[in-house]
Design a protein around this nucleic acid. Structure first.
Lengths: 238, 238
DNA sequence: CGGCCGGTTGATTCTTCAATCAGCCGGTGT
DNA sequence: ACACCGGCTGATTGAAGAATCAACCGGCCG
């Protein structure tokens, strides 16, 4: 265990242990869920005494809160960068999808906890985590508001709902991997999923203007020559 | 309290009380969450003695399980009807969206519990509720498999993922109402949300076929005259 | 009338954990 | 050497709440 630290680490030792515990918490939460695990599990996973968890965190809830703050703030920051950056709507949408999937690639467990435990927890404790989620949706909705003014969007779209739908699609896409519906070790699959989410959101699933139209009418009109590629190599954002 | 039942109810009395408890459970779960409530709360809500809950249900978990089975089977049945029915892809997609929103309109509490407590619960107890969710996605994916063979779909779409995305969009749309982001008493808003979800999924958010390919430019300006209508009166399914 | 029986009650028991706390251990300064 | 100090330990406590159970109705049948 304890590596001798020499001198080097004088600055931030205060972490180290705390980090270990936080990491362990993420792993355990991801494996058994917040309610399904005891502090003892976290302590064991971290290879640390039960009491030490309480030395670094006020209580179990603060532990979850911290996991949340840590992971979420990074995500929001990146999303904000995309939203406020240069480029057309399409590029930004792809950028947002990319941020989410990248987060997943880097730390699937953390993303799992964020999605499963936090985004959907009913009125969790004091601090409204729901709020944080809503804030993210609001943030990216600006993207659609501006795009709409610029005429990039169809007229009958509500920006807030569009934003929500994008996140919903991303979340469900990730959930497919989180729950094992899709193989998350397949880098190709991840890439394809990313592309399809962005493409579907931007262009829909239909194979072009569906000529048949059905029953009533889905406005088949589509003068626009070739719809083209679609292969969508959409500009990588990174 | 106890209404005298006269004779009339001879047949299925075995329910009655059980139903009351189940109903109470849904309400309480919706209000405080599964983990956030005690059996005592359910009993009180139902106006029934604590012990009676255990007369009708083996334990707290079975209560949730039952809420799930009850609500979910109905939903799946309706979705199946849509998937296996007649009509073009577009109509069916709208139909699926409609089923979900109708369920919400009829019993928002129950839908809330389904979404918040069950869809996302991490490896809950024995029975895999995740599985049920996955099954629904698989079921509706058949819709996309067939549509793809018929050439209705773009070639580069994965049916399973498409199905997941549709459900993701629906779920997030409903979540917006469940969490109060949008006003669920506004029938108009519900209608619009439904239409936008289906439209976005089928046609995307973009103002038109953006021919510009991507890479460099995403072709901002769109001359395409009137994009118009699109008001989408999409065939009502009911 | 009296005993049975299924539905019903709610106090009691038992379990599970979050949270505490008295003290240990090893490093550091004097 | 000694005393101090902060990180660290884990048995103990106390509360919350799930599940049990013995007793209690009120109808019904013999």
């Amino acid at each position: 265990m304890g590596q001798s630290k020499s001198a080097a680490d004088n600055g931030n030792r205060e972490s180290e242990r705390r980090r270990t515990i936080l990491r362990a918490a993420i792993d355990v939460f991801a494996r058994k869920g917040y309610h399904g695990c005891r502090i003892a599990d976290v302590a064991k996973e971290a290879g640390v005494a039960y009491g030490l968890v309480y030395h670094y965190f006020k209580n179990k809830d603060e532990l979850l809160e911290t996991v949340f703050d840590t992971g979420w703030s990074g995500f929001v920051t990146r999303v904000r960068a995309v939203v406020e950056g240069e480029g057309a709507l399409s590029a930004k949408v792809y950028g947002v999808v990319d941020v989410a999937f990248e987060a997943y690639r880097v730390d699937p467990r953390a993303v799992k906890v964020l999605i499963l435990e936090i985004a959907r927890s009913p009125a969790g404790s004091r601090i409204n985590r729901q709020t944080a989620f809503v804030d993210a949706i609001r943030l990216s909705s600006e993207l659609f508001i501006r795009a709409k003014e610029a005429g990039e969007l169809r007229a009958d779209t509500d920006p807030l709902l569009s934003s929500a739908l994008l996140f919903g699609a991303i979340e469900m896409g990730l959930t497919a991997f989180v729950t094992g519906l899709a193989d998350s070790r397949d880098a190709q699959a991840l890439e394809r999923a990313k592309a399809q989410i962005a493409d579907t959101f931007l262009h829909g699933v239909l194979a072009d203007a569906s000529p048949g139209a059905e029953t009533a009418a889905w406005k088949p009109e589509k003068p626009s020559s070739e719809k083209s590629s679609t292969k969508s190599k959409a500009p990588k954002r990174t």
